[in-house]
Amino acid sequence: MATNTNDAVGMPQLDFSTFPNQIFWLVVTLVVIYLILSRVALPRIGSILAERSGTITADIDAAETYKRQASEAEAAYNKALEDARAQAHKIVEEMRADIQADLDVAIQKADAEIAARTAESERRIAEIRDSANEAVEEVARDTAREILALFGVKAEDKAIDDSVSTRVKGGAA
């Protein structure tokens, strides 16, 4: 039934007359593909992949470096903050001590002044009291003399004075 080359007789795969042709072109094809792949395509794709993985590795390294730098900066910042806090604390303490010292001196001075003034006041009070006592004594003595004169009693001035002073002192005591 097969009258021309377009019709298959049985299995064309087993038509050995075409084998040399197929094998020849297959070998040519394989050699061409091998040359294209090994000379051009594979080195190119390999270098692209290597370059990419290199870039990725480098980028990851850079990222690591930046991360480390950031954490170092953070540590430095924290340390600076800590130092500043300590410094501030120290300054506050010194200030407080200074003020306390000034305050102590001032209080001491004030206390001394108060004591001095108190003493002065007491002294003056005592003076006033003394002078008052003297005035009382004198008034008493004069009064006593006048009374005695009125009654016509003659008395030694000295005796009157002694007696009045004894009485005044005893009353005061």
């Binding site: 299995m11 064309p12 038509d15 020849f24």
Partner: peptide, 23 residues
């Protein structure tokens, strides 16, 4: 099975080793 037939592209009946075929 016709689709598997090896045939010359540019005329001729015989398929020699170096014939340009559909292969």
């Amino acid at each position: 099975m016709d689709q598997f037939v090896v045939r010359p592209l540019f005329g001729g009946e015989t398929v020699g080793m170096f014939t340009i075929t559909n292969v």
